[in-house]
Simulated scan of single mutants.
Amino acid sequence: MDIRLGDNQYGKAETRLVRVDRAEAGHEITDLNISTALAGDLAATHLTGDNSGVLPTDTQKNTAYAFARDGVGEIEDFALRLARHFVDTVDTIHRARVAIEQYTWERRGHHSFVRGTGTRTATVTYDGTSATVVSGVDDLVVMNTTGSEFHGYHKDAYTTLPETNDRILATAVAARWRHAHPRNADWGEAYREATKHLVDAFADTYSLSLQQTLYAMGERVLRHRAELAEVRLSLPNKHHFLVDLSPFELDNPGEVFFAADRPYGLIEGTVVRDGAPDPGLAWW
């Protein structure tokens, strides 16, 4: 029986890094969670324990801190700097993936802050020749208090869900968009505009299903941002159930709800621009 080593990678997960830029006009915070994953000619460490080709995960962490001393800038640029450094300076490393979460802060005064809405994300994969850059947002919580229906679905012996012509539609958006031409991207503008179009499409769409809303959100982003090749969305359905107040001899004209925690429906999908260049590297 032949046995061999399959695909493998290693790295430093969730390095927390906070940089404070102390400008006279007011401080700025860059708050990051960085995960690195390296792959390449690493069979020796698995098969014989020879670590000569291994860049320690602690070194990967320290590199992120050292690079931040000169400033972070847009997280896509910072991830590209790290990924290229690992591949271009270590002979045994042939691919690097750097994933960054950025926790947003809004300044309230010269040096006081409150956490912002949503978590900005970026993932860069670099193989020594080409780079794939994927940006996004997590935990962007949105709600429509009306303008949503759900009916006409398939029913079987186990279906108990009643049809509705008016419901609350709420979700915590996780979205990723792939840049078709990373070398020419304006990361900050793309993030601000893509997030705006996601929210606008959610608000503007009269929804007959969360799937319909998902497609409308992805389509709106691609129609307004020509530099993006595709958008992937994961939308948990944050269910709100009307509370029965009849035991208390009260009516409930769509005003009092129970916000369910779990289980929840999870709707996921990709909206793709025809003719978009293939990324060449896995990106999701």
Rank of each mutant, 00 (worst) to 15 (best):
I3E: 10
R4G: 12
L5E: 05
L5W: 07
Y10H: 11
G11V: 02
G11R: 01
K12R: 15
A13W: 07
T15R: 02
V18C: 13
V20N: 03
D21L: 11
R22S: 05
R22D: 06
E24C: 04
G26N: 09
E28N: 08
N33R: 12
I34D: 01
T36H: 02
L42M: 10
L42K: 03
T45L: 05
G53V: 14
K61P: 00
K61T: 03
K61G: 01
T63V: 13
Y65E: 12
F67S: 01
G71L: 13
G71M: 11
F78A: 07
F78M: 09
A79M: 04
L80S: 13
V87H: 03
V87D: 04
T89W: 04
V90L: 07
R95A: 14
E101P: 01
Q102S: 13
Q102D: 03
E106N: 13
E106R: 15
R108K: 14
H110K: 10
H111D: 15
V114G: 06
T119P: 01
T121H: 04
V124N: 00
D127A: 05
D127T: 05
G128E: 05
T129E: 15
V133C: 09
V134W: 03
V134Q: 04
S135Y: 02
G136M: 04
D138W: 06
V141N: 09
M143C: 15
T145W: 11
E149R: 15
E149G: 03
H154F: 06
K155R: 15
D156R: 05
D156F: 07
T159A: 11
T160R: 08
E163C: 07
T164V: 10
I168C: 12
T171G: 00
A172R: 15
R176Y: 06
H179K: 02
H179W: 13
D186I: 08
W187S: 12
W187C: 05
G188C: 06
Y191H: 15
A194T: 02
T195P: 00
A201V: 10
T205I: 11
S207D: 01
L208V: 13
Q212I: 08
T213E: 01
M217C: 04
E219N: 06
R220M: 11
R225L: 15
R225S: 08
E227I: 07
A229R: 00
E230G: 07
E230N: 11
V231K: 01
R232W: 09
L235K: 04
P236T: 00
H239F: 07
E255M: 12
A260Q: 14
A260V: 12
G265S: 03
L266I: 06
T270H: 03
R273N: 08
G275V: 09
A276M: 04
P277G: 14
L281G: 00
W283N: 10
W284A: 12
